[in-house]
């Protein structure tokens, strides 16, 4: 059994409104999942719950073979689960400081952080951007820096919220290549995806959401 993550009856409610009601979610190690569905179907809510940003109830949450709670969310899970916003925000420091942020936050030493950030910069092909102020970067460039920032932490699961939405063709191409590279590294990806943009990735499993419910699409 190589389940990376499994949970049963994952629920999030706001008042009477059910935002999320997933009977079962199982993610296998090294798989890429595309989470599709209309606006408001609960794709972002599901990702945010798994990233620990929104509280959700879950009967049985297991990650890397260990029973965990989803809320309160254990801080150490952030090292293993990376999340990138729909429109990622960069701290208004520098590109390098953005990439080392998570490394410093999780206790990496300065030389180690510098070295891993450097590797992430090379990996994402963003070396030409390192001297540009983060707020001056284009949407596609921000997305790549955000991916590098998460990649530097080497999580086992990536949660990406519409990573290629609103990007021009070139940006979409570069970001898709990075996602493909993550998948080839044997990492697990759960990608919310509004349209068919990412379907040219090979070997993906499609999950479809409707009104907070999840189904495995054919």
């Amino acid at each position: 059994m190589s389940h990376l993550l499994s949970c049963h009856s994952l629920k999030r409610q706001q008042g009477d409104r059910v935002l999320l009601s997933v009977d079962q979610l199982v993610l296998e190690l090294g798989q890429t999942y595309l989470l599709t569905g209309a606006n408001g179907a609960g794709k972002t809510t599901l990702l945010r719950a798994l990233a620990g940003l929104d509280s959700a109830r879950c009967a049985n949450f297991e990650f890397e073979g260990v029973q965990r709670s989803l809320s309160p969310y254990p801080r150490k899970l952030h090292r293993r689960i990376g999340f990138v916003h729909h429109h990622p925000i960069l701290f208004s420091t520098s590109v390098v400081a953005n990439i080392t942020f998570g490394l410093h936050a999780t206790g990496a030493s300065r030389p180690e952080a510098a070295q891993r950030a450097d590797a992430a910069i090379t990996w994402a092909g963003i070396r030409p951007l390192v001297d540009t102020p983060p707020q001056a970067l284009s949407a596609g460039e921000k997305q790549r820096v955000a991916l590098a920032r998460v990649h530097a932490m080497d999580p086992v699961l990536y949660l990406l919220d519409e990573p290629t939405a609103n990007l021009d063709e070139n940006g979409r191409d570069l970001v898709t290549r990075l996602i493909d590279a993550i998948s080839k590294e044997g990492r697990t990806l759960l990608i919310a995806c509004h349209d068919r943009e990412l379907l040219n990735l090979s070997g993906v499993t499609r999950l479809n959401m409707t009104a907070g419910r999840l189904e495995v699409a054919s």
């Binding site: 940003l53 990622p88 701290f91």
Partner: peptide
């Protein structure tokens, strides 16, 4: 402040103090 600043700090593993400092910096 943009809520994503705080959320980004949290998902990158920052504790309360580092998260607060990141938001206040912005």
């Amino acid at each position: 402040a943009d809520a994503r600043v705080r959320e980004t700090a949290i998902v990158l593993g920052a504790g309360r103090v580092r998260t607060a400092l990141s938001v206040l910096r912005e």
